Amino acid sequence: MVLKQISEAKCFGGAQSIFEHHSERCNGAMRFSLFQPPQAVRGERRPLVTFLSGLTCTEENFTVKAGAQRVAAELGLNILAPDTSPRNQGIPGEDESYDFGSGAGFYLDATQAPWSGAYRMYSYISVELPQVLAKNFESIDLSRQGIMGHSMGGHGALTIGLRNPETYLSISAFSPIVAPSQVPWGQKAFTGYLGEDRQSWADYDATALVLSGHRSGGILIDQGDADQFLAEQLRPELFASACQTAGQELELRMQAGYDHSYYFIATFIEDHLRHHATALL
């Protein structure tokens, strides 16, 4: 698997880079951001935390806005930030709306044509991309992984983490879509990518996964109470209720006055990285 390095910059003693490679799962070029802490640059094998971004984002949003590198350097955590969907597939309607198609892969494996030929972000994140890392970065310890994300990416972190607890030893999320089967963003995406059979949706719905027996270690969620999407699209109370019913440990922190933006993420990113470090170090 050939990697093309797009950029590299020294950052807090580590290396912040963007890479591109050909993805079989996503039928074309995919980019990801990787921060390697100074310990990894020196050749030490260090844990990996993957951050999944939200609607309209690329691999760059978290990288340049969240301010994660300082604490990641201190803790010795590699930070991976993949793109949010395949690009340039030539599918009719791919670029017509912000919440479906380009920039809106929803971290699932589409089963409906024409999306099923490329929109396979679940297996890209959980299978193909770790294989790319294993072949190219000896300093990444894939036996110690955590996963986190924001909004659509928070949905991805919860579902991928819950379905693969042997791989992802820690999970956290900012403003996640916790019950996509019950909100407009998720219903639109699931219908388009997965079809009308709602039973197939449950594999990509964190609330449904918890109620069906999927488990993880303690999950941390931060949610701003001034988030403009809170009542219609996010509905954290549904996931909290499911976790209480199922006995899944959850710390849901409602943060007064915070919205859906990266200012919110930047405020609490240190807490999340330390949450992951507790499980991975």
Rank of each mutant, 00 (worst) to 15 (best):
Gln5Trp: 00
Gln5Pro: 04
Ala9Val: 15
Lys10Ala: 10
Phe12His: 13
Ala15Trp: 06
Phe19Gly: 07
Ser23Ala: 01
Ser23Phe: 06
Ser33Asn: 06
Gly43Tyr: 02
Leu48Asp: 03
Gly54Trp: 04
Leu55Phe: 07
Glu59Ala: 09
Asn61Gly: 07
Val64Arg: 06
Ala66Val: 04
Ala66His: 01
Ala68Pro: 08
Val71Glu: 12
Ala72Gln: 02
Leu75Phe: 04
Gly76Arg: 14
Leu77Asp: 11
Asn78Ala: 09
Glu96Met: 10
Glu96Thr: 14
Tyr107Ile: 02
Leu108Ile: 08
Leu108Ala: 03
Leu108Phe: 14
Asp109Cys: 11
Ala110Gly: 07
Thr111Asn: 15
Ser116Met: 05
Ser116Phe: 08
Gly117Pro: 07
Tyr119Gly: 07
Met121Arg: 03
Ser123Glu: 11
Ile125Leu: 12
Ser126Met: 07
Val127Asn: 15
Pro130Phe: 13
Gln131Asp: 00
Gln131Ile: 08
Lys135Leu: 14
Phe137Val: 05
Gly146Thr: 15
Met148Asp: 11
Met152Ser: 15
Gly154Thr: 06
Ala157Val: 06
Leu158Trp: 07
Gly161Lys: 05
Leu162Lys: 04
Pro165His: 00
Glu166Lys: 00
Thr167Tyr: 14
Leu169Asp: 14
Leu169Tyr: 14
Ser170His: 12
Phe174His: 01
Val178Glu: 03
Pro180Trp: 02
Trp185Ser: 06
Gln187Trp: 11
Gln187Asn: 14
Ala189Arg: 04
Tyr193His: 13
Gly195Glu: 07
Glu196Leu: 12
Arg198Cys: 10
Arg198Val: 08
Gln199Ser: 15
Ser200Ala: 14
His214Trp: 01
His214Leu: 09
Ile219Ser: 07
Leu220Arg: 00
Gln223Trp: 01
Gln223Phe: 04
Phe229Leu: 11
Leu234Gln: 00
Pro236Gly: 05
Thr245Cys: 09
Gly247Gln: 03
Gln248Ser: 01
Glu251Pro: 06
Arg253Lys: 11
Arg253Pro: 02
Ala256Leu: 00
Phe264Tyr: 09
Ile265His: 10
Asp271Phe: 12
Arg274Ile: 05
Arg274Leu: 11
Arg274Trp: 15
